[in-house]
Amino acid sequence: MTSRRDGLEQNYEEIAVIGNGAYGTVYKARDLKNDGQFVAMKRIRIQNTEEGMPMSAIREIALLKQLENYEHPNVVRLLDVRHTDHTASEIRLMLVFEYVDQDLSTYLEGCPPPGLGPDRIRNILVTSQGTLKVADFGLARVYGFQMALTSVVVTLWYRAPEVILQAAYATPVDIWSCGCIFVELFNRRPLFCGQSDIDQLSKIFDILGLPPEDDWPENVSLPWNSFKAVPPQPLEQFVPEIDNDAKDLLEKLICFNPHRRLSAQEAMNHSYFRDDLDSLRTSSSLSVSEGESFETDGRSDTPSKHGGS
């Protein structure tokens, strides 16, 4: 149990502004109490309602704190939560995170991208050792009430169709997003760049084809027949560098029906990753016996499975 007091801002020395978003400002700072190591400070403003602290803010920050118990190597550490000042209408909190120098977009920029716009994936970070770290999950909901005011298109591109359709959704939405990012690792640009909810769905169907009516979620306001029936396109047309294993994985990650989409565990067991681990273990890229142990359809001989990385 830690207790924090006000007026201890001098513990951190702001160095530069890293980002400025709808949610507030992110600073790079030095933690003066800990040998001046770098931290990322995120100031967030939470509306003070008639009912006190909003439920979403409590739940999300508590969840972040809870996650800390697991000390997952691929999750950005939340070092501190500080209550700075508050007014009658809003509470200002400062979340102190470990500092990671680059986000995935900057990292991918290492290899010049074909037309990567100013929109970037901000919440997947890469350390100088090449470790991926996820930041900021649930906070999207905390920021949510303000985000509605600005056009935050970036997250739309990674949004699963059931979310856009406002149907019931659960963890498969994350798998969808993984699929979108997986493509981006090959192409170094997003796959579905919709300008609006409807446009996003059309962009998805342009590639995946309009799903059969049975797969359309129940009780959604957008009827199935409001979209043109288009046939699915071969994925390699949009991801030229993809090999068969990766293509198979991708198809199962961006499957329209969330019930048939892979689970995280199933995805980890996919032969795409299996092959990668085995080749690391034997330090030979393709061994024959291994190739036969899977019933995959004609594997490609592309040696590099990670386009770009």
């Binding site: 924090r4 003070n48 006190g52 602290m53 409590i58 809870q66 209550h83």
Partner: peptide, 18 residues
């Protein structure tokens, strides 16, 4: 007072409320 107190509880427990 209750709103203020709620904020204080959150602060004292450092948001560890699960």
């Amino acid at each position: 007072q209750v709103i203020k107190s709620e904020r204080r509880v959150l602060k004292e427990l450092g948001f560890c409320v699960h």
